[in-house]
Computed example of a mutant assay.
Amino acid sequence: DHGDLISLKSMSRMDGPRFLEGAVFDNKLSLQWTDEAKQYSGAVWRMHDNGDGTFSMECLGNWPANRWLSVKNNTLTFAETSDRGLATRWQITRDEGAGVTIRNADTSGNPYLTSSPATGSVSLASGTGGGNSGTHWQIFKQKAFNPAIEGKWSSVESLPTAPIHAIQLLNGKVLYWSRFVDANDAAGSADGVAKGSSNTYLFDPVTGSSKAIGNAPVDPYGSSHTFLADGRVFVAGGFIKPFMGQKSAQIFDPATNQWSRTSDMSWGRWNSSSITLSNGDIFTMTGTNMNEGDLTYTPEVWSATTGKWRKLVELRDCGGGSCTLMSPWIHLAPNGKVFVSGANQATGYIDPNNGSW
């Protein structure tokens, strides 16, 4: 039926992989051992009824490429669309057994889809053999796609600026901001706005619209951000110029769409990382400081009770770990410590009470 999701299994007598798989990124077909029963596996196909006794077969492989099974110069390939003239029409005929044959309706000579499990290959044949030959296939119907359950991509939304930073708020809206272009930027830089312009917006996914709100008191480009316990957004550091960071910390309140300042850190931080601790305090580490290019090696913790920062111990050597990288990957571990998972291969924990690694 139109829109059905299926997988196709070769009925060949030969041993080997049997499920038809489309590798849309390089326009090739092959056989694999399982259909994986996943919505967007390369072995899952969507059938489109053309209304003339033929179907077009759309490969649901995970790749933005041509998807329509086609024949060109007597070779299997993928077409960009299912338009007539691109040899994407296939006739599916039930055979004398439990299978079907699949014939390209736009091709003469070798129109039949055939398989060789021994080599894992798929090609075209001039005719069909017996019921156990490679030109015979079993159809397995996959679970129907239900966007209400599984979701789907919308059309591309047009935004007023490039969201270099974006945070989904607890009310479902998305706070995002860009950066200000400066003398070092090419004219018309696509990811920035002119100084003095609005660069901070709220995106409403319900209406698909963006609303300009007041810019942060201090340029937050290159900052790190996390949530306070009450849903406000905490932003640490910011931009002076490339590799030179602000000491500022500021808070965005979604209830009022207003920014406010809190106490400054001891050092500037550009491209730092921040995370909310189990007690509601904020842990911030690394980033380049106000001495251009110098890394801030000492983590700091902001108290949600006092609004003040306390310095931890300097971390210059963490056994090849990521405590000296810009924007390290950090997570709150169940033991209350900060787990640093990358980007270096070595990983480890930082104790936010004393800063030990």
Rank of each mutant, 00 (worst) to 15 (best):
T114M: 05
S108E: 11
G151E: 08
G99E: 00
G97F: 00
K173T: 13
S115T: 12
L113Y: 00
R103Y: 06
D185I: 08
A105K: 02
S197W: 01
H136P: 03
N171T: 11
S197C: 05
V156G: 05
P117N: 08
V193R: 07
I164E: 09
G134M: 03
F145E: 05
D106H: 01
A166V: 05
P163S: 06
D185V: 10
S133T: 15
V174T: 12
G192A: 15
W90C: 07
V122C: 10
R103E: 15
F78W: 02
V156N: 11
S108A: 14
E150I: 06
W137L: 08
V193E: 04
S121T: 15
S82T: 07
S116N: 13
Q138D: 14
P117I: 04
L175F: 00
P111Q: 03
N104P: 04
G120M: 08
D191F: 04
N110K: 11
N146W: 05
H136D: 00
Y176E: 03
L76W: 08
V174S: 01
N110Q: 12
I164A: 11
G131L: 15
T101P: 02
E80F: 09
G188N: 07
N184Y: 10
Y201W: 14
A187V: 11
G99I: 01
L76A: 09
A166R: 05
K152Y: 12
L175H: 02
S116P: 01
D191L: 01
P147E: 12
T119N: 12
S116D: 15
S197N: 13
T119Y: 12
G192T: 03
Y201G: 00
P160H: 09
A87P: 00
R89S: 13
D191T: 15
T107N: 02
V174R: 01
A194V: 14
E157I: 09
N110D: 11
S133N: 13
L76S: 07
V156I: 14
Q168S: 12
G130T: 08
T77Q: 10
S121E: 11
T93Q: 11
D185L: 09
G120H: 04
S116E: 10
A105Q: 03
A190P: 02
K143R: 15
T77I: 04
H165M: 10
G188A: 07
L202H: 07
A144N: 11
A105V: 04
